[in-house]
Write a protein that binds this DNA or RNA. Structure first.
Length: 292
DNA sequence: TGGCAGGGTCATA
DNA sequence: TATGACCCTGCC
């Protein structure tokens, strides 16, 4: 068994590992100790710890693959500049100040697709448990530091399973969607790994052909795995906070909220969404009370 | 112990 | 375009 590789990324600013790992954009990060997170990215087992402005990684990655970490955590993007632009929107200031350094990960599009199909009408705890069972049952084993970890199963593996076998991960009625989507991707009907070359609108259209993928899930895939930052996924939390901020708490149709946010934030929409989501989910009661 | 909501999607009318 | 069903789990 190879020795763990230790990588230190210095002066990573702004960066908030907790907000990133626990911000609902990825479901395979678990806090192991105070401030320390463990995740599996592709074939890599990653132990991540933030110490001040440094990000320390202990993993089974070879040193020459350091770029994969940079790419995944989006370390080469100037988030200071992005946050500065977002702070020009007065209503975003509390959210950006609450979780400065909340970056958008660059995840695998296939894993992101299945993960967010599972997320529909589901709680984050259940989503994580189902994905864990999916990996433990149908992923490949990785040995690291005398423990066994699991990769996310490849499309062909899930496509070859029966609906009942998938259902054993306790994903409920979503098993049918996972099965059908896996088949479409394994058969090449949707070229999930090359979609990023298209425009946001074109990709969204293709993604929505997949069973279990509607507008919201498609926008999550666009934002969290294809770096389409003009995507703005609207879930219950974002709906609540947009209605609160812009419409005096009045219930609005998603389509109106979508149009409003995309027009207001443009190419920064995805970033705005991610700060708003984490802030709202963490502080909803305080947000409500502030203006009442 | 039972009711309810949870990062929505889909079929139906 | 609006409405309700949908698996399962954890929480109150």
């Amino acid at each position: 068994m190879s020795k763990p590789t230790i990588l230190t990324f210095k002066d990573v600013v702004p960066f908030d590992l907790e907000a990133i790992a626990d911000g609902g954009q990825a479901f395979r990060w678990e806090q192991t100790n105070d401030g320390e997170y463990l995740g599996v990215i592709g074939n890599a087992v990653i132990n991540a710890r933030q110490t001040g402005d440094n990000l320390e990684i202990v993993s089974n990655l070879k040193k020459e693959n350091e770029y994969k970490i940079r790419d995944y955590f989006d370390l080469d993007r100037d988030y200071s500049s992005i946050e500065k632009k977002l702070l020009c929107f007065e209503e975003l200031q509390p959210a950006v100040n609450f979780c400065t350094g909340n970056r958008i990960l660059h995840q695998d599009p296939w894993e992101t697709t299945i993960s967010f199909i599972i997320s529909a009408n589901n709680s984050i705890r259940n989503i994580k448990n189902t994905i864990r069972r999916l990996c433990e049952s149908y992923g490949d084993q990785i040995q690291f530091n005398e423990k066994i970890y699991y990769t996310f199963p490849v499309p062909e593996r899930l496509a070859g399973l029966s609906e009942d076998e998938i259902r054993q991960t306790r994903c409920g009625y979503r098993a049918k969607y996972i099965k059908e989507t896996s088949c479409m991707i394994a058969d090449g009907k949707v070229d999930i790994f090359n979609l990023h070359k298209l425009t946001t609108k074109e990709i969204r259209k293709q993604l929505k052909q997949l069973p279990g993928v509607g507008k919201k899930v498609a926008d999550c895939i666009l934002l969290f795995s294809m770096r389409k930052f003009d995507a703005f996924p609207i879930d219950v939390w974002i709906k609540r906070v947009l209605e609160h901020i812009y419409f005096s708490g009045k219930q609005m149709p998603i389509s109106k909220l979508q149009e409003y946010a995309e027009n207001r934030f443009g190419d920064l929409a995805g970033f705005a969404q991610q700060y708003l989501f984490h802030y709202t989910r963490s502080c909803w009661k305080e947000i409500q009370n502030k203006n009442n």
